[in-house]
């Protein structure tokens, strides 16, 4: 049984059809990449799965439950968390407080000491331990991207959806974050990742979905995707470095 099933979902904003009958499955423990040119509907797809928007048609099943019309705060409690393409930290909260909001949000019933232990673990894992007292508004982008991941992990998510985590980062920062994603995958998290840095994504994942103008035009291994004529025409052709 797949962890997540997206069944023929569509979404329009006014007269603009942004997602057109997209279907795919995500199995537990997978690390899947989603690529596509600007305006392909990648972030809208994430917004639909995470409950920020609701699809006009189709359904979304998570852990065998229909979550199509559920609100984001209910989905988080079911084990589905996300990060944002344009970072959305709580700017006036410290790094530690940003993570604690996630603890409150999912209503952890653990003891204070257990919560503190979990907090330290997440800070350590995401490389934010030294910055725990810093206000989020004072952090550089690289740390904010990590904070996005840290907050999502803090919800105790089973499925982590990362929206362009590498965008705007330096090469060394991308490498560090790729390592973090690998670590999170290795401890059992299922990860769905949108990325524009195609080379990094194809290195990281075993399966890639390609969106183009709101449609899923290809699904396969990175190698299959690299060689697909339609994908090259629609997207990879622009990215000379991945050829």
């Amino acid at each position: 049984m797949p962890l997540l099933e997206v069944r023929n979902i569509s979404k329009s904003f006014g007269g603009l059809k942004v997602i057109k009958g997209v279907s795919f499955n995500v199995d537990k423990g997978e690390l899947i990449g989603i690529i596509g040119p600007n305006g392909a509907g990648k972030s809208t797809l994430f917004n639909l799965i995470s409950g920020v928007y609701h699809p006009d048609a189709g359904s979304i099943i998570f852990k065998d439950e229909d979550i199509t019309k559920m609100e984001p705060y209910d989905l988080v409690k079911k084990g589905l968390a996300r990060s944002w393409q344009i970072v959305r930290p709580f700017r006036n909260l410290t790094v530690e407080e940003n993570i604690r909001v996630a603890f409150y949000g999912v209503g952890f019933k653990d003891s204070l000491s257990e919560r503190n232990r979990r907090l330290d673990e997440i800070l350590q894992m995401t490389g934010l331990l030294q910055h725990r007292e810093q206000l989020a508004k004072n952090l550089p982008l690289g740390h904010l991207k990590r904070l996005e991941v840290a907050r999502a992990v803090a919800t105790g998510a089973e499925l982590l959806m990362l929206d362009e985590p590498f965008a705007g980062l330096r090469v060394d920062e991308i490498k560090g974050l790729m390592h973090l994603v690998t670590v999170l995958h290795s401890i059992g998290l299922t990860i769905l990742i949108i990325e524009h840095v195609v080379r990094s994504l194809l290195e990281l994942t075993r399966r890639v979905l390609v969106l183009h103008e709101g449609r899923l035009i290809k699904e396969g291994t990175p190698e299959e995707v690299r060689r697909d004529k339609m994908v090259i025409e629609a997207y990879l052709g622009e990215e000379s470095e991945v050829a």
Binding site: V52, K77, R82, R91, V101, A102, T155
Partner: peptide, 15 residues
Amino acid sequence: RAVRDDEVAAKCLGI
């Protein structure tokens, strides 16, 4: 304070 800073992000963390 989280809600004041970003309602949508707070919702997506279960608030």
